[in-house]
């Protein structure tokens, strides 16, 4: 129920964002259609804890800024490599075990790895990630990393 309400609220916010007009009829139409979509989602059984993880929204506020700084740092490193005339790359594949237990946590970890330039998650299974790194040190930095610990803290008690 609470997921239905939060989904309707999100959809309604999206409607307001796109429309930008605040007349009674238009706003009512938007509210009506967002509630209808939430009901449809409920009927289709796609409305659950995993698809709409509002319980994580508070902790996200501390995790995302850290991730942003990480992204900037590694993007700067990759830019330096690109502009270096010698192109000092050493592409490496590493396999390792992430310590998350929930699907949302695993997806967050995999996406964070991909989002930081220089490393890409090629395969993300429950007990094993396959990561391709632009440099050897960068790829091996993903094993038991700071990011791993932070994501585990982020997912909290599953």
């Amino acid at each position: 129920m609470i997921y239905g309400l939060s989904l309707s609220a999100c959809l309604f916010a999206f409607w307001l964002l796109l429309s930008g007009y605040f007349e009674a009829f238009l706003v009512a139409a938007g509210a009506g259609s967002s509630v209808a979509v939430a009901l449809f989602a409920h009927r289709m059984k796609v409305l659950d804890r995993e698809g709409h993880p509002i319980h994580l929204s508070l902790r996200a506020l501390t995790y995302w800024p850290w991730l942003g700084i990480e992204i900037i740092k590694s993007a700067w490193n990759v830019s330096r490599i690109i502009l270096d005339p010698k192109l000092p790359i050493s592409p490496t594949l590493v396999r390792f075990k992430p310590s998350q237990r929930t699907i949302v946590g695993l997806v967050t970890h995999a996406n964070s790895i991909t989002l930081t330039p220089g490393t890409i998650t090629v395969e993300a299974n429950e007990g094993e990630f396959l990561v391709h790194g632009l440099t050897k040190t960068g790829a091996q930095g993903c094993i038991d990393s700071e990011m791993d610990r932070r994501v585990t803290r982020f997912e909290g008690r599953a």
Partner: peptide, 18 residues
């Protein structure tokens, strides 16, 4: 500049993020 597909993806992610 990158020599193969996977390394090119890293370069593209610089555009996508930063």
């Amino acid at each position: 500049r990158m020599p193969d597909f996977f390394t090119r993806m890293h370069a593209a992610s610089v555009t996508d993020t930063l």
